[in-house]
Design a binder for these strands. Structure first.
Lengths: 146, 146
DNA sequence: CCCAATAATGTTATGTTATAACATTTCTAT
DNA sequence: ATAGAAATGTTATAACATAACATTATTGGG
């Protein structure tokens, strides 16, 4: 959270209470969480109802700063573990437990850059999501299959 | 379309008229198209109203056979140009014109496989979408900036 | 300090995407 | 012909997201 404050200060952005609350909730979850689940949790915390624009605005703000990421294939959001450094925007999404691990993978990014360049395409951002089984769930499914 | 029929025959699946109609529409569009746009077009073709489950079922069927792909970042669907061969599921999505070009990029797939393996993750499918400007739109934006 | 400009939030309404659940029809193989 | 399976029709609603405008809070210039 201190890190988040630094990022905001560096960019002249205001980490207001409601934005911070959304960031907290997303960070506490170690899995991607949907906007409406955030709405519910926020309503419970605040003791009053919370409307969609409230959280979507906070989400947009946090996405813009790179403090969270959107997992397009799940319509949900997850905290970014390295908000200051450049990152790959690459996720290993487990279909069993719903986790989404962000990976740094230089090889992939350079391969993507090369592919885009070859096609004459100017890459601006990317969404790379690998769906499968995380190590834990993989073990479990192997056990249950015995 | 003959190709589509072959794929179906090979898999013992039935390319019924409504599935074929949806496939046609997706193929005719050279850009990703959303489910509700398909519903409209299909209704116009058929001269009667079409309900969501109808197209979503066709979409699921076609996705299952690899005849179309889902572009997660756009909630829309596009035809697969190489339905029989293995493919990368990698798209160059233009934010200006909305096109989505499917790329074969061996380097990326091997890099992804290596990253997943290193993390002990079993990859099953992937969604790799590069957002940016396609060559045509790139030129145009360069011109208009002069 | 006050005020105007800007930024953020509140509020109402609605748009867009997707699926659950169950009824009916069509197809297939015997 | 007929039972079982596959596909489609139908109703309803769930889940995700934003437009548009009103109000409040913040900040910087005077």
């Amino acid at each position: 959270m201190a890190q988040a404050r630094n990022v905001c200060r560096a960019r002249g952005a205001r980490l207001t209470p409601s934005r911070e609350a959304v960031l907290q909730l997303i960070w506490q979850n170690h899995k991607p969480i949907g906007a409406y689940a955030l709405i519910e949790q926020l309503a419970k915390l605040n003791g009053k109802r919370v409307l969609p624009p409230t959280v979507y605005r906070a989400i947009d703000f946090l996405l813009g700063l790179g403090l969270i990421h959107r997992i397009a294939s799940l319509n949900s959001f997850i905290g970014c573990p390295f908000p200051d450094s450049a990152h790959s925007d690459l996720f290993l999404v487990c279909r069993a437990c719903g986790s989404a691990a962000e990976c740094s993978a230089e090889g992939i990014n350079s391969a993507i850059a090369a592919t885009a360049a070859r096609a004459g395409f100017t890459a601006e951002s990317q969404s790379v999501e690998i769906l499968g089984l995380c190590p834990q769930c993989n073990l479990q499914s192997a056990e249950s299959a015995e």
